[in-house]
């Protein structure tokens, strides 16, 4: 299934895009998804500190991605 994924902050810099459609197998958890992003984009070295939201709700790493989910990748930010 194609999962729409939004990238914010430094995650957008790393991916180079606001959003991607990412092809995901069934039974993929956020932890798997995180590992896959890190594998594809080695600059995601701090990704374990990022927050993931699905359909505008914060999710734990063991959340299993469902069809039509909208994922947001949210790095910590520190500007002020």
């Amino acid at each position: 299934m194609k999962i729409k994924t939004l990238f914010f902050g430094v995650a957008r810099d790393i991916v180079g895009k606001d959003e991607l459609l990412i092809d995901v197998q069934g039974n993929t958890t956020i932890q798997d998804f995180e590992a896959r992003l890190l594998n594809q984009y080695p600059d995601f070295s701090d990704i374990r500190n990022f927050a993931f939201a699905v359909n505008e709700s914060y999710v734990d790493r063991n959340y299993s991605i469902q069809k039509n989910d909208l994922i947001a990748v949210l790095p910590p930010v520190s500007g002020g």
């Binding site: 902050g9 430094v10 930010v77």
Partner: peptide, 10 residues
Amino acid sequence: YGSLYKFDGY
């Protein structure tokens, strides 16, 4: 709380 990075803010 408020914070930001480049074009995005929380």
